[in-house]
């Protein structure tokens, strides 16, 4: 089955991962801008990172037949440096004409601080001004419920926000309703310990349906599994779900959301 991994950080992965993903049926991926594991020191550090996301990774992916798309932002983990965050937000438009950019992301909250909320809000302003799609990171573990509520509050406060152009990521059992009941897209991240397992993601699909929802590996430099989406496919098959339903979640839904981006050009596999 062909699939799309809508959230994976390939700058942290080796070429073998690209090859393994291609062998498992991955035909496209999207890579949100992310925290490097350390705080970058200058706007030029981000400029180089955005070149990697818009020039280098598409070539690595294309070498194995995968289309690479990306999202730009400064991650919430670095939002405490408000001055740098504003410099990065001001620089992002330099890259918005790159053909593989899908929008602004993954913006959001990490520890639910005042500065994080401010920088989230300023990213949102940029996305609205430039008519870009928005991809939102929700916090981890004990911070997730509160942070997701805060994010939804900020989105609903602004009548310019279009839920169908906004994706709330890393939803779990206690936050999926918050995203779906207001018409936002959402995604579940399949992580070994700290987020959803393939089995719990399948449970959530069975409880909340397969509209406006997708699954991703969020593979990065930490404990993660770049083949987590095929693991989810296998779990759904073992439960007796149809190929059509599974394909909707792992292939058609990401395409439907991404297709709202004016630059998005997808070459479907023959």
């Amino acid at each position: 089955m062909y699939y799309i991994d809508p959230h994976i950080h390939m700058v942290s992965r080796v070429t073998d991962d690209y090859e393994r993903m291609a062998r498992m049926g991955c035909v496209a991926m999207s890579e949100p801008a992310f925290w490097a594991g350390f705080d970058r020191g200058s706007v030029d550090g981000f400029r180089d990172y955005f070149r990697q996301l818009t020039e280098v990774e598409p070539k690595r992916a294309a070498a194995v037949g995968i289309q690479h798309f990306t999202w730009l932002c400064i991650n919430a983990k670095e939002a405490e440096n408000v001055e740098l965050s504003r410099e990065v937000i001001a620089m992002i438009p330099e890259f918005l004409d790159s053909p593989n950019v899908l929008g602004i992301g993954e913006i959001g909250l990490n520890k639910n601080t005042k500065n994080e909320a401010q920088i989230f809000w300023e990213h949102m302003e940029l996305a609205l001004k430039t008519e870009e799609l928005i991809l939102i990171h929700t916090p981890h573990l004990q911070d997730k419920y509160k942070g997701t509520r805060m994010i939804v509050d900020m989105l609903l406060d602004d009548p310019r926000i279009k839920p169908e152009r906004t994706l709330i990521d890393h939803v779990e059992e206690h936050t999926v309703k918050l995203a779906k009941e207001h018409g936002f897209w959402c995604a579940m991240t399949l992580y070994p310990i700290t987020k959803c397992t393939p089995s719990r993601a399948a449970d959530i699909i069975e409880m909340y349906g397969d509209d406006r929802i997708m699954v991703n590996s969020a593979g990065d430099w930490g404990p993660s599994e770049p083949l987590a989406v095929p693991d989810f496919v296998q779990e759904m098959r073992r439960r007796g779900h149809s190929e059509k339903k599974i394909s909707k979640i792992v292939y058609e839904n990401p395409l439907e959301f991404f297709s709202q981006c004016k630059r998005f050009e997808f070459k479907a596999p023959e």
């Binding site: 639910n112 573990l141 004990q142 911070d143 997730k144 419920y145 509160k146 509520r149 805060m150 779990e172 059992e173 206690h174």
Partner: peptide
Amino acid sequence: QIVFSDPY
């Protein structure tokens, strides 16, 4: 999940 969550 709510047991393990900070209050909002």
